[in-house]
Design a protein around this nucleic acid. Structure first.
Length: 805
RNA sequence: GCCGGCGUGGCGGAACUGGCAGACGCGCAGGACUUAAAAUCCUGUUGUGGAAACACAGUACCGGUUCGAUUCCGGUCGCCGGCACCA
């Protein structure tokens, strides 16, 4: 009899063996087929690992381990995304340097990950706060700067009142700071910006060539928000200037009944003298400026606005005079900050027109028949046909747009134009714990990049890294560091004191793993050429519009700079669901439903935790934790362990289970590649039950089962391999092959139905001819064949259906 | 409002390309072992009726296509996630 399985001894034993044998190191043998599996590297927070972390890590660990056994040179690395606010805040509160806090947190995370038996190649560990790493983050920034993609701009930013830091639009959620939940206000500051908008088209079009789950592609496209339309110039009565607007519906130009400009539109100030109700305009503008973007959106239902008394626009297609209004439903930050309003065919314009009693003119009819545009705006493009529109009458919307653009361009009053919702990336943070921006400002030369030879530009040691109330970075107080000389003219200059956002270091880390110690480049061309792109990248949905978009942008830029050799960084992207508490709610301290993975490892073992996290449910959906479920997985592993006692010395598969063995190998092999870990494990549980029913398992069967289960439960399977007297390690074995022909039973039991309802079953040979099968089927249910047979259907190996009247 | 995703036993969840709905696990019930409990093992477990064979109903709801629908189509309701005046 085998001993009871003791994970407390077995798991550390094998973890040490794997370390000593460098079992999972990727080799630099570039002749082998490669497989690069990547999980998002964690932010090493003070709380330590959460049970949510092991879900994606285990999933790709399974794939990585399996691919190694299939002969691939596998790169499965891990590192630390360690710059960031929580560490800095903790450091301030506890008066410890963030560097020390980071070291401690990383050590804890690493221990925890180690205890879970992941096959990470620890020789390639990276840390974004390591100067040898951020040297290259800074280097990429210099490249961006030199390419004109980094620029400084005075702009209203999202300012978190608690973190005292500027945030990118992507980091503001419902008007609050994504991280701390405090109120976000607008504040004008001079900030470094990255021109991600220049890559908007490439970022959309690149999605066609990669294998991302659909919802990721859709979110990225929505976030970039490409829309095609036209810019049209409206004359202003008695003025030289034209009022330029952006529209996606230039086909409706004949339906314009008024114009709207944003409260921030420059023409307001410019034509102050002509505006008779200036006081009213000023009052409206002030009220609008007090609203945050969030409030503007919240108040969307109730439109407000003021007509400009003194300025009138002229519709360029029919010469009609139309009034101009000011309203905050038009945003200065999109398009031209001015619109033409067609209330008959736009819901927002319609609401506004209703509120202020403005005329509504129908120019598009449903399939040519007029609809009541006084009751609701008609916006359906698919069925719309133009009316009341002169030379485009009778055309479908699509054709009318084309013809109108042609007309506008010919007359020089408008052009086709594409717009994006995507804004440039606010890259400055007024914080200490981030990469210094390697730029100096010289009074004579302006912004000057420091020389590459001076990288890394080290973060200076400071006594106080408290955020300042005036919005300046803590580095600004370090005059020794700030005052420097201009690399260009040698005159006095000041260093940039803002640091980079946390997204910087994570925008290229997958490149560094390819060649993590290279001192001359972020990674060698050969290494990048071999390993990139990442074959499979898994991460959270919450990173779809932030990290994923930013890193694709950097990668595309590096591709254009000839640093990397593939246009997209990730060939395949999948996403895991969240692990919820037992009560089905998100795990949080305040809800008291947090599960600590250390406790599970201690009580049930790492293999149990790994198995449970994979068995818990469909990988991409949220799942609730269940301690009983954990116990069930431990029970399964205990039963696997005790198979040793049923083992015979026979090397092959037993006759009666041969088909099932081949089916199981096939299912597990395919399911591991298709995110269906739960059903792969279920298949192994099922065949385990068969061995118990027989009370026997051949050595050949047990060896196959051990190898199949190894990626999920690596420790117990290594121990069993040794216990049954096999030499070598499981991780060195070849992945089992299945024979397709042997996955099919020679005899099958099929259902016999009458009118689609099952009345009985029938055992047949899989190749039996149709007539025989139907004859047998009729015999089997003879007593129920009481009507006239209309039709007889046989789907080979599946079903017989007798249709009766 | 718009865009995604989802709705199956007491629970987590299976079901290939339209072919025996409920695999696998949990829980529960009964039994074995035990002085007893835990652990372990065995049996049962969608509902209703029946001792059973079996019959009928059943995949959110209504309808359609089909010999046959959890799966495809149209509509309704509900839940989750994202975006939200982007002209």
């Amino acid at each position: 009899m085998s001993e009871i399985y003791n994970h407390k001894v077995v798991e550390p034993k094998w973890q040490k063996v794997w370390d000593d044998e460098k079992a999972f190191a990727a080799t630099d043998d570039y002749s082998k087929p490669k497989f690069y599996a990547l999980v998002e590297f964690p932010y090493p927070s003070g709380q330590g690992l959460h049970v949510g972390h092991p879900r994606p890590y285990t999933a790709l660990d399974i794939v990585a381990r399996k691919r190694r056994m299939q002969g691939y040179n596998v790169l499965y690395p891990m590192g630390w995304d360690a710059f960031g606010l929580p560490t800095e805040n903790f450091a301030i509160k506890n008066k410890v340097h963030p560097k020390i806090v980071t070291q401690n947190n990383v050590a804890r995370f690493k221990d925890q990950l180690h205890s879970l038996g992941y096959s990470f190649d620890w020789d390639r560990e990276v840390n974004t706060t390591d100067p040898n790493y951020y040297k290259w983050t800074q280097w990429i920034f210099l490249k961006l700067f030199k390419a004109g993609l980094a620029y400084k701009k005075e702009m209203p930013i999202n300012w978190c009142t608690s973190c005292k830091v500027g945030l990118a639009n992507e980091e503001v959620v419902n008007g609050c700071c994504e991280r701390c939940g405090s109120e976000v206000v607008r504040k004008v500051k001079s900030e470094w910006m990255l021109k991600i908008t220049e890559y908007a088209d490439k970022l959309i079009d690149g999605l066609d060539g990669v294998d991302y789950i659909e919802r990721v592609k859709v979110s990225q496209k929505n976030w970039i928000g490409r829309s095609t339309g036209a810019e049209v110039d409206f004359s202003i009565k008695d003025k030289e200037d034209k009022l330029r607007i952006y529209t996606t519906r230039c086909d409706t130009l004949f339906g314009v009944t008024y114009m709207v400009v944003s409260p921030e539109h420059p023409y307001l100030d410019k034509y102050q003298a002509d505006i008779k109700n200036w006081d009213e305009i000023v009052a409206y503008r002030e009220a609008a400026s007090k609203k945050s973007d969030f409030e503007r959106a919240e108040l969307a239902k109730d439109k407000t606005g003021v007509q400009i008394d003194g300025l009138t626009a002229i519709n360029p297609v029919n010469g009609k005079e139309v009034p101009i209004w000011v309203s905050d439903y038009v945003l200065m930050s999109y398009g031209t900050g001015a619109i033409m309003a067609v209330p008959a065919h736009d819901e927002r314009d319609w609401e506004f027109a209703k509120k202020f009693n403005l005329p509504i003119i129908q120019v598009v009819a449903k399939d040519g028949e007029e609809v009541d545009v006084n009751a609701a705006a008609f916006t359906d493009v698919a069925t719309g046909v133009l009316v009341n529109s002169d030379f485009i009458n009778g055309l479908e919307v699509k054709d009318a747009k084309a013809k109108m653009i042609e007309f506008l361009e010919e007359k020089g009053i408008g052009t086709a134009k594409t717009n994006y919702k995507l804004r440039d990336w606010v890259f400055s943070r007024q914080r200490y714990w981030g990469e210094p921006i390697p730029i100096v400002e010289c009074e004579k030369c302006g912004f000057v990049p420091i020389d590459e030879s001076e990288l890394p530009l080290l973060l200076p040691e400071v006594d106080s890294y408290m955020p300042t109330d005036n919005g300046e970075s803590p580095l600004a107080a370090m005059t020794d560091w700030v005052n420097t000389t201009c690399p260009c003219c040698g005159g006095p200059a000041k260093r940039e004191t803002d640091t980079m956002p946390q997204w910087a270091g994570s925008s290229w880390y997958f490149l560094r793993y390819c060649d993590p110690t290279n001192e001359d480049a972020l990674a060698s061309k050969e290494a990048l050429n071999y390993w990139m792109p990442v074959d499979w990248y898994n991460g959270g949905m919450e990173h779809t519009t932030l990290h994923l978009l930013y890193s694709r942008f950097w990668h595309k830029f590096l591709y254009d700079q000839d640093v990397v050799t593939c246009p997209e960084p990730y060939q395949k992207r999948t996403s895991h669901g969240m692990i919820l508490g037992e009560n089905g709610e998100k795990m949080s301290k305040s809800r008291g439903n947090v599960v600590n993975p250390d406790d599970i490892v201690r009580e049930y073992g790492a293999d149990t935790l790994r198995t449970y996290e994979m068995f818990i449910g469909a990988f991409d959906l949220a799942a609730s934790w269940s301690e009983d479920g954990v116990k069930g997985c431990r029970r399964f592993l205990d039963r696997v362990w005790k198979l040793q006692d049923l083992m015979t010395e026979e090397e092959g598969y037993s006759k009666d289970l041969e088909t099932k063995m081949h089916q199981t190998i096939k299912k597990v092999t395919n399911d591991f590649e298709n995110l269906k870990y739960n059903t792969a494990i279920a298949a192994m549980m099922a065949i385990l039950n068969d061995f118990y029913k027989k009370n026997a398992i051949t050595k050949g069967e047990l060896k196959t089962l051990i190898v199949l289960l190894n990626p999920v439960a690596p420790h117990i399977t290594e121990e069993m391999w040794e216990a049954i007297g096999e030499s070598g390690r499981v991780y060195e074995q070849t992945w089992p092959e299945y024979d397709e022909a042997k996955t099919v039973e020679s005899t099958v039991e099929i259902a016999v139905q009458i009118n689609g309802k099952t009345k009985g079953t029938l055992a047949i040979g899989k190749d039996d001819p149709k007539d025989d099968v139907i004859a047998k089927a009729k015999e089997a249910i003879a007593d129920k064949l009481t009507g006239n047979i209309v039709k007889e259907i046989y789907v080979p190996g599946r079903i017989v259906n007798i249709v009766m009247k």
